[in-house]
């Protein structure tokens, strides 16, 4: 993408825009349009209070999208997000009554997420089952385990104080801690992608697995590692969500799978893998959350909301999600 000499500045600019910045610009522009449209309908749409609240809501999706992005960068997909997230949430509330104010819930949930991710990674990297179907199976198994764990109903207990503080407390006055957690996760992920060998390996595997293998890269370890991280993101977001909403329930993860994938793709990450920036995922997440929120503020009936939501994603894909023609 970045040519050594500026050959033709116009073509170079266009190339750069197509490469990485076009998705960011378009998605950013869309965010501005949504904010302006929202403000004309309801003045409160631009108030700091509302925007911070939206950022807090976005932080849960943002953490899930972080894991989804890593997996998509590899050219795989993780469909086990819904019940991995729910498992994290149910363990989070289930362990809330234990010692140390339920603080143990967080490491346990993360460990379970890592375990789920490891199973996914083994299936995809070593058994070579297509990720779409293997993670689907893992999702079904997790659902079964959680039905067994909770007895088929929502767990009665609520989130531990520490978890509540992590999601809704204010370390910095006026800024919910969930946003700080998202920022920390994002910073780590961004650093890993840009500055570490692991990050470079990830892009290489996503671009061409075979070439990466011939170059001596630990391809299977990379795939396993990424699924482990994605699992931890999902359960982590699940625990955090219980701190926000106070409880865990069946199917709470269902509304996170597709928006997370949409956020990643709208942020310019190629669904084929190997291409994308973390900043894009952040912008994509904010876009999705604001879009959902604005459609709710407009008091649009659910049918219209779904149609517009799908249409916006569809049109944005047409703007920059197109592949080259096969010739």
């Amino acid at each position: 993408m970045s040519g050594s000499a500026p050959t033709s500045s116009a073509a170079g600019l266009l190339g750069r825009l197509r490469g990485a910045d076009l998705p960011l610009l378009v998605a950013g522009g869309c965010i501005l349009v949504i904010l302006c449209a929202g403000a004309t309908v309801n003045g409160a749409f631009l108030s700091p209070h509302y925007l911070i609240q939206q950022a807090q809501v976005a932080s849960f999706l943002g953490i899930v999208a972080t894991g989804a992005m890593l997996v998509i960068l590899l050219g795989h997909i993780d469909l086990s997000v819904p019940w991995t997230l729910t498992a994290g949430a149910m363990l989070g509330t289930g362990l809330a009554g234990t010692a140390a104010g339920g603080a143990v819930a967080i490491p346990v949930a993360l460990a379970v997420g890592a375990l789920v991710g490891l199973v996914n990674g083994i299936g995809v990297a070593i058994l070579r089952i297509p990720s779409m179907i293997f993670t689907l199976g893992v999702n079904a198994v997790l659902q079964g385990l959680m039905v067994l764990y909770t007895g088929g109903s929502a767990p009665p207990s609520t989130a531990a104080p520490l978890v509540r503080w992590l999601a809704g407390g204010h370390l910095v006055p006026g800024l919910p801690n969930a946003i700080l957690v998202w920022a920390a996760v994002g910073l780590l992920c961004s650093l890993m992608l840009r500055r570490t060998i692991a990050g470079r390996t990830l892009y290489a595997v996503g671009n061409r697995e075979r070439a990466a293998y011939l170059n001596g890269m630990p391809v299977r370890r990379a795939v396993c590692g990424v699924f482990v991280l994605a699992g931890m993101c999902s359960t982590g977001a699940g625990v955090l969500l219980t701190g926000y909403s106070g409880k865990a329930f069946q199917g709470m993860g269902d509304s996170y799978l597709l928006p997370a994938i949409a956020a990643v793709v709208l942020g310019g990450t190629s669904i084929m893998g190997g291409q994308g920036r973390y900043a894009g995922t952040v912008v994509g997440t904010i876009l999705i959350v604001l879009l959902q929120s604005m459609l709710a503020v407009l008091q649009m009936p659910d049918a219209g909301r779904q149609i517009i939501y799908g249409l916006v994603i569809f049109c944005m894909l047409l703007l920059y999600g197109r592949q080259r023609a096969a010739r």
Partner: peptide
């Protein structure tokens, strides 16, 4: 994925 949301809306 995007069209399925639209179909569901309809």
């Amino acid at each position: 994925l995007a069209t399925s949301t639209m179909f569901y809306g309809v």
